[in-house]
Amino acid sequence: MALMSGRIRLLLIVLVLCSIMPVFFALDLCFAQQKTPFALQVGFTQMEGMGKLKQIQGLFWSPAKNRLLVTDTGNNRLLFFGDSEGKFRFLSEFKSDKMALPISAVETSRGTIIVIERGAQGIISYNPETGERRGVLADGFPDASFFWPTRLALDDKDNLYVVDQGNQRIYIFDGNLTYKLHINSPEPRFTGFSAVAVAKDGNIIALEAQRGIVYVFDKEGKVINQFSKRGELRGETEFPVDIAVDGQGRIYVLDSHRHQVVLLDRNGNWQGEIGEKGWKEGKFIFPYRIEVASDYRLFIVDADNNRLQAFVPAGRAEQ
């Protein structure tokens, strides 16, 4: 009897497996497509004429100049990269004797470079043509006793967004670097902003890394949406460190400990994952910074492998 019941159970298991196998295949195919929406364009730790990268802390795509600004913190310099003769290349270097541990930088449409320097514990503006260096944002905004700028972002009107982790705020300055407004803690349990990005429609996307929450603010700094959290489920992140937003409003959350990017639509719905843990090109070990270009190219600082990698949407790679 035991043998008979065993056979029947086996038969039932086979029947169940047969009925669910097509579902598994369909899901697998679906995930496979969502896993690789981007293809590696280039990955490098050095290029001709620039020496080796050392601890990149910031990335900024300048839509006005159509080039990537890289904060090469360990070498106390800023680097520009762009497309030349159909290839992604090193373009130029910007250095100043007084530059001390730059950790985040942006370039305005007029060519001014604004940098957070950890050594100077403040924000510095550089005019690359005249070499003029001046401290900015010394006053004009309220209660800045713990001002601790960590990240910068810029919108297409040259409005500057500054993450101040000391006061758990985001300050917004106009193109003349005049204080406009600031965004405060959105809720009581808030632990501070870690990264900021600005969408094409002017919405401000900010990351609260400690709880993994992505906030969407309107231009006036009012919360209009919030989603995601730290966790292991789809759409959640285990150790988010940076965010970026593309021209369609899709949000890229960089999950350093899971060594991948979580892609969300503008409403926070999970769209897919990009990348995986590894040492070979196209993979990451503790990725640290992310930026999206206006042509949807993705730049990722692969921190533990000390390299910068550029990815293009898979469709474009095939063309």
Partner: peptide, 29 residues
């Protein structure tokens, strides 16, 4: 005093950490 300024008032030697690349909890106040 408020926040870390109260601690730094005696532990002034710890201020140096704010000049490093990676500051834990983003230089929390």
């Amino acid at each position: 005093l408020t926040g870390r300024t109260l601690c730094f008032d005696c532990h002034g030697n710890k201020k140096d950490m704010l000049s490093k690349i990676y500051v834990h909890a983003g230089g929390s106040k």
